[in-house]
């Protein structure tokens, strides 16, 4: 009786998953099998392996990797310091607060901040180092992307650190471990799940970034996300756009499998 009730509860959930997760992915897969004239073909997948799309894919990976690494480098110490502060909730709120603001608005603000006549260049000019071009460079792209994604890296690491039992750290010190060894052998392995969750939350959306590639990088950075947008909105080559999307789905699936595999070893 009870299990039947539970199955009943599962119906809306199952329908939701089917309608909004399974069906769309199948549809994308279906569309990817048609060329621009509506003929059934696998040419879209062959085209993916041409230098232009392969290069684009490699570049997307490279930038997503950079964004994730930089986010992690900044987020881990930040999360660690956060656990040590007195008003944790307030600091946490301050970190989350910017993500309440519209993404497009924040990106537009950065055009002004990083511009030739923006405040950063004013400071650089005052110390005799500027003005120099910041907007439309790789640096500005990584910088803004990290700014946007970093809350998603800090939060899981923060909760992992919070759950860490302090007596374990105390025990490590008692047994003569140096702070570095304690971190490497005790703290980091125990918070690895948070790091993995954070990396997934940053790497996966970073792979398909578009918009800021145009606004901040001036299309000097071309990712698969840009190409998908173009195929759907401009060329109306839905087949190729879908094929690229399928590759992204596969890449994301691989990312999750790779980051999860460590768990079983443990």
């Amino acid at each position: 009786m009870k299990s039947r009730m539970r199955n009943l509860y599962l119906i809306p959930y199952g329908m939701w998953m089917a309608l909004f997760v399974v069906v769309p992915i199948l549809l994308v897969g279906y569309y990817s099998l048609f060329d621009i004239d509506g003929r059934l073909t696998i040419a879209n997948y062959q085209r993916f392996f041409s230098p232009i799309y392969l290069g684009m894919a490699l570049r997307s990976f490279w930038y997503a990797l950079l964004i994730t690494s930089v986010s992690l480098l900044i987020a881990y110490p930040t999360a660690y310091l956060l656990t040590k502060t007195r008003h944790k909730q307030l600091w946490l709120l301050l970190i989350i607060l910017p993500s309440w603001m519209n993404l497009l608005l924040k990106t537009y603000a950065f055009i002004g901040i990083l511009g030739t006549y923006g405040p950063i260049n004013a400071v650089l000019g005052a110390i005799g180092m500027g003005p120099r071009q910041i907007l439309f460079t790789d640096f500005s792209f990584i910088f803004v992307a990290v700014y946007i994604f970093i809350p998603f890296m800090i939060l899981p690491i923060f909760s992992a650190l919070e759950e860490l039992n302090p007596s374990l750290v105390a025990a490590a010190y008692d047994l003569g471990a140096s702070p570095w060894v304690t971190f490497r052998r005790v703290v980091f392995p125990l918070t690895l799940s948070g790091v993995k969750a954070g990396c997934q939350a940053v790497f996966i959306p970073a792979l398909s970034l578009f918009m800021i590639t145009r606004l901040i990088a001036g299309n000097r950075v071309i990712t698969l996300g840009t190409a998908i947008e173009q195929h759907f909105l401009v060329t109306q080559d839905w087949g190729m756009g879908s094929a690229l999307a399928i590759f992204l789905v596969i890449a994301m699936g691989l990312t999750i499998i790779l980051t999860e595999s460590g768990k079983q070893v443990k």
């Binding site: 055009i111 511009g115 030739t116 006549y117 071009q133 907007l135 439309f136 145009r214 606004l215 001036g218």
Partner: peptide, 17 residues
């Protein structure tokens, strides 16, 4: 080419970017 942009080209040029 400095950048390839969308509608924001108006703002960028007016601001002498």
């Amino acid at each position: 080419v400095k950048a390839i942009v969308g509608d924001e080209i108006k703002m960028l040029l007016a601001n002498e970017e």
